[in-house]
Every structure is written in C-alpha cells, then in structure tokens.
Simulated assay, not measured.
Amino acid sequence: MYATFPDLLRLLFVPALAWAAYHDLRVRRVPNELWYPFAALGLALLAWEYVLVERTSLFLVRAAVSLLVIPLAYLFWFVGGFGGADFKAFCVVALLYPTYPSYYLADLALPLVRTQLGVFSVTVVTNAMLASLGYPLALGLRNALAGVVSKLMFVGRPVAVRQLAAAHGSLLETPEGFSRGGLDLDALRMYLRWRGVTLGRLLAQPERYRDPATVPAETNDPGDGSVTTEPIPDPASEPAPREDADEYDDPWGAARFLDDIDSTAYGTTPRKLREGLDVITSQERVWITPGVPFIVPLFVGLLLALTAGDLLFALMRLIGLV
C-alpha cells in the first residue's frame, strides 16, 4: 500500500476507534485519555499539510468546513442527542480528516467515491448516519425472531426487571404508559448505590423503600452509574419505615437524592425517578431502549469512508441527482 506519511498516521485512529466502539458498547464508558493524542495529532497534521503540502485557500476552506462538525456535535451533545464520548469522537474526526486521504493498493485507489466538496469528515458523518439506520431494523428483527411484536419493537426490547442492574439504556415506560422519556438506567444504578440497596432488595420490599424515612442518614457516593461487579456498600444504619404514613412528601427519597449528588444524574428529575421506580416495582418485565452509542456507527462510517467513500454521494449519483 502506498500513501503519504500524514495519511498513514491517520490510520492509527481506526483501531483506536474500534476499541472505543467495543468498550462503549459493553460498558457505555470510554476513557477521556483516548481522545487527546489523536486530537493533537489532527492539529499537527493540519499544520503540516498546510505548510508543507497544500498551502492553498481551498485547503483552508475544507479545513474550516470540517471544523464546523465540532460545534454541530456539541449542539447534539448539549440537547442530549448523544453522550460525551460521541462528542469527543466527532471532534477527533473533524481534526484528523479535513480532506480526503488517499491509499493505493496495486491499481486500486481508495476511497472509491469522493465528493465534490472534498471534506472527508463530512463523508464519515453521513456514512455513520446511514449506518445507524440499520440498528432499528436489526432490533425489530431480533424482537420478531423472539416472538415479540409491538409498536416498540423497532426502538426497544423487553427485559426482566431483575436484569436492569446490568442493562444499558433507559425505560420506555412510565405509570401512564409508553414514553421515550423514561428513567435512565445509569441514574437508577446511581440511586441504588447512593441509597445502599440492591435492586433485588428494592424489588422485594418496594413499600419499605418508597418511604423516604428509610433513606440512611449517611448515604454512599453514587458513582457514575456504570455497570460494575463491585458490591453496593451497605448503609451504616437503615431507619425503619413509618407505620402510619400512606402519602409521602418525597416518595423514594427522589428529591433528596438529586439534591445530595453533584450531578443531574443524566437529566433525571425527582418525578422521572419516582415514576421509573414505580414502574419497575409494579411489573415483572419492562420495555427499555438500549441506546446504542453513536461511536459504533461512527466507526462503521469511518471504515466505509476509507474504502467505499461517500455512500450518500454514490447513491445520489446513481439516481442522477449529481
């Protein structure tokens, strides 16, 4: 294979992004330290290519368009469209791939399809968006093969409530019915750890734990809600529930939990937490949306971009739009 030295260096990001996609899919966490070297590499290669290779206004325009991916990705992160690791991955792609790389294998020049715009990061992003469209279809097929047919079969899957401690995503249910704004399962794990109670104990005695008086005076650090095999610390003491109370000012101690921690627990509100706890303690199975990290389709989009090129542009060319 023949390629310029900067383009060869850019290939180092491919296995790193593959590892990030695998790790994010398994535990929904990617170390921040992964992104910094590649962001620095992207900046260095930008300067290198402008000073030593391109030095044209067209290169600067393409670099500027590529960098526009960063504020757009930030906007999606800000509104909750995807997570922090997804945002950082987009930033690295914007810095590393402002223009199309070139790789020559015998008589084959990759990528095969290049756009007139010539901004490779945009190609990676559009490919990733196209790749992400396959996930609902795969989820629906999985549910259908399991004999589960529902209007939610393309956006979620049913799981036993006792498995939620190790599941990723968010609930698709509230006491009023199906909802896309259900409780984040990371927030549920944070709540359980903060309170010092396992999911099994909470499910076995929901009326006890619904009483805010049973929240220990000394609570635990809630952590970040990641799935872990580390046991939940037992509280030093757990107050007894009140025997004469039917209604509570703060059911489940939800408001106290959110007041006590140093984060928003992934956008959770006291009402959302209470509704989620009411749902999981009243049903055997619930619908959740797995919430696949966008790093996964981003990795697929990068692989496709490096080989096939821009899929959307190829499709538009095929039907005569360009």
Rank of each mutant, 00 (worst) to 15 (best):
L105T: 13
H168K: 03
L183H: 03
V14C: 12
E243N: 11
V61C: 06
I70N: 02
E49H: 03
V215M: 14
E230K: 08
A3Y: 05
A109E: 15
V79K: 12
R28A: 08
V322F: 14
L8N: 00
L171E: 13
Y97D: 00
D250A: 09
L46E: 08
D86V: 01
M190F: 00
A240Y: 07
I261M: 09
T268C: 06
T115M: 04
S132N: 10
G42P: 04
V124D: 10
L108F: 07
L199S: 09
A308H: 10
E247A: 00
G140K: 03
F82H: 07
N32S: 04
P290K: 14
V119Y: 04
P6Q: 14
L105V: 15
L96R: 02
G156P: 05
L277H: 03
R208G: 02
G169K: 09
L68E: 13
L312W: 11
T307N: 09
E284D: 13
L277Q: 06
Y191Q: 04
F299A: 08
A138E: 02
L192G: 06
G309K: 06
P270Y: 00
F294L: 08
R271Q: 13
L8S: 13
F178E: 15
E176Y: 09
L75G: 07
G118V: 03
D86T: 01
V113C: 01
F59L: 03
D278P: 03
D278Q: 13
P111W: 10
F313H: 00
Y74G: 08
R29M: 07
A236V: 14
L72Y: 08
A305G: 11
P233D: 01
I280F: 02
S282M: 00
A308W: 15
G225A: 05
V124Y: 11
S226R: 14
A138L: 15
D259W: 04
G309D: 06
L273E: 04
D107H: 14
P37A: 08
V61D: 05
F90D: 01
L58A: 08
L11Q: 11
L112Y: 01
P231V: 00
Y50S: 06
T4Q: 14
D244Y: 15
V159Y: 09
L315C: 15
G84F: 02
P235R: 07
G200M: 09
L145M: 10
A245F: 02
L152E: 15
A138F: 12
V149N: 12
G225L: 09
L17I: 11
A44L: 14
P31M: 08
M1S: 10
V65L: 13
